[in-house]
Amino acid sequence: MDQNGTSRGKVCVTGASGFLASWLVKRLLLSGYFVIGTVRDPGDAKKVEHLWRLEGAKERLKLMKADLMEEGSFDEAIMGCQGVFHTASPVAGTAQDPMGEIVEPAVQGTLNVLRSCKKNPSLRRVVLTSSSSTVRIREDIDPRVPLDESSWSSAELCERFQVWYGLSKILAEKAAWDFCKENNIDLVTVLPAFLIGPSLPPILCSTASDVLGLFKGETKKFEFHGRMGYVHIDDVAGCHILVYEHEAAYGRYLCSSTVIDNNELASFLASRYPSYPIPKGFKELERPYYEFNTAKIESLGFKFKPLEDMFDDCVASLIQQGHL
């Protein structure tokens, strides 16, 4: 509540039951917003139960049905909202048709949401969850110059190495910028690194289960990480709200705390959590060295939590949920 006793206004979060979206809904409710969350099936208790348990949910959360691939299905949820956080995006499909299962839905879904935004006269700003993979997948990285928001990944490289998730994020973000420029929509994008932290949904998403695997001694998922940025899930939610609320926020914002090689990460984790069979190391990959320059979000006063905090919180939550 602000001084006048009114709430912070009404915002929409797409794909509200997801790993990041759930945490964003939690933070928005704690900040006093009225939140409309879109999910594919509001009646699916297993998928949405955790949202109803959030503080403030009974009073200020409404879940509505919407589907990324259904034209106009976001109209009702978005109408009357001052802000829209578009976080919903397909993460994994089968290898048979990656374009049809991951890339197309990401691009079409984003445009579908933005078309609904265009019909809403109350709209102030759209915040799109993109990914740091839209910045770092390139062949021409200068290891001495940290990557910032002016860098774009190579779509051609993603196709060549079949990095379908990266390709879907690049094309969806570019489509969003084109659409918003044409239609005078105030868009800000957040580019998170690999999310680490507690999972509110009881069913772990691929990101959270990859981390769980690491603590059980499995190497297969993290083997491909090579050098990777990591960030606390709470920081990513915080970044979304900060760039929504900050009048002067514009353009893209990298959201990453620490960039580290997976061998360094393995030894850090093994020494911090000695009771788990964490792999001692991974096979070296021929990947370029890079750092991220996050001065842009930090200039708005943002401070990132360190690696220790993100993994401590993550482990505590995996234990509490009975996964570890």
Rank of each mutant, 00 (worst) to 15 (best):
F74N: 05
F302Q: 09
K216A: 03
S132M: 11
G43E: 15
K10S: 07
K169H: 06
W52Y: 10
V48Q: 07
H225F: 10
L204S: 04
E149Q: 14
R124S: 15
F311D: 02
R40E: 13
I297M: 13
L28W: 02
R27V: 15
Y289E: 14
P98H: 12
F304C: 04
K283L: 08
L30K: 09
G281V: 10
R8D: 04
L24D: 04
L171R: 03
I203L: 15
P201E: 11
K26F: 05
T129N: 08
L157Y: 00
R138I: 14
L68S: 02
K221D: 15
A77M: 04
D313T: 08
A266F: 12
H86E: 02
R115K: 10
E173C: 01
S31N: 14
Y230Q: 03
V113L: 07
M1P: 12
I102V: 15
E291M: 11
L285R: 14
N112P: 12
I185W: 04
E104R: 10
A270V: 07
L123D: 11
G109W: 01
E245R: 05
K65C: 05
G229I: 06
E218G: 12
E247N: 12
F292K: 07
V48K: 14
K280N: 10
E182I: 08
L254N: 04
V48E: 01
V127P: 09
N183E: 15
H323T: 05
M69H: 08
K305W: 03
K305Q: 05
L54P: 04
A16T: 03
K305F: 02
C314G: 09
T14Q: 15
S275L: 08
P288T: 06
K220Y: 14
P42H: 01
P274L: 02
N183D: 11
G83T: 03
P202R: 13
L212E: 01
E286T: 11
V190I: 06
C180G: 04
A95I: 08
